[in-house]
Amino acid sequence: MAGDILVVAEHSDGAVKRPSLEALTCAAGLAGSLGGSVTALVAGPGAADAASACGAHGAAKVLTLDVDVADTNAWAAAVAGVATEASPALVLFSHTARGKDLAPRVAGKLDRPLASDCTELSVDGGAVVARRPVYAGKALVNVSASGTLLATLRPNAVPATENAAAGETSAADVKAPEKGLGAVLAEIVAAASEKIELTEAAVVVSGGRGLKEAANFNLVEDLAAALGGAVGASRAVVDAGWRPHTEQVGQTGKTVSPNLYIAIAISGAIQHLAGMRTSNYIVAINKDPEAPIFKVADYGIVGDAFEVVPRLTEAVKAAAAAG
């Protein structure tokens, strides 16, 4: 129906991922204004167990898709099939590693426009308006389309809340309509340790060239571990080979928007700021009081990272121990 919303919810073994709970919460708000309802689409092993969390966050209905989620093309075809039947106002994904790969595939199959990496969705005159950063967040555009719009929602942009009015959810199965096209996932190699996805982390601790060598990143890792956060890096240290490319924050790296961003020995070049300036709170530790990072830091400490960071890590650990 015209005011309905489909949300492609990701989960692992039935535990719905936080970015998807955020997308469901966002969709529930929009559906209210559009006079429609939210249907969650879940796929993969344990999908049935994801239904109650989807319901609690605003889905009136949950469809389980019987597809191999390793085959993104088949997954996209199943989502496109449901969307064609439903002709909703919005098909919403999370801007996660999977979501940003899946959404354009669905857009291609439906030949409908997609607004990527949105930070806000609203309803204006009965149509969905998507607000999204462009030029690495140096500007924002508000876009809309007539007919079904697809969008991916940036993690941490909208808080996930349970919907008190959640009603009954009903589940239904959808069969995969087609097999993938000439691209087969052969192998998945896990990281040495389970990592918090940088773009989804509530706390990000990043280090820069001022740390002088790769080994000194243990300062960053220890603080991140104490805060339960993810590790990020400036391009300078990624290019130097100290850290993997997947950790680069900035215009040509990842865009992060955590609740707390801590920049250690990072100067704050315009390309770095582009990737983290929408963080809720920014802490900067740098020995140069003129470093541009201090212009965006809510809390700046002028000092030597090698002295300040260990002290901060201890204080965080002590606070955690004290409960």
Partner: peptide, 20 residues
């Protein structure tokens, strides 16, 4: 594209102290 705008300015940066 209905409009393009600059992001709201961040709160003014603030240095809260020096050293550990």
């Amino acid at each position: 594209v209905k409009s393009l705008e600059l992001p709201p300015p961040r709160r003014e940066g603030r240095i809260i102290g020096e050293g550990p």
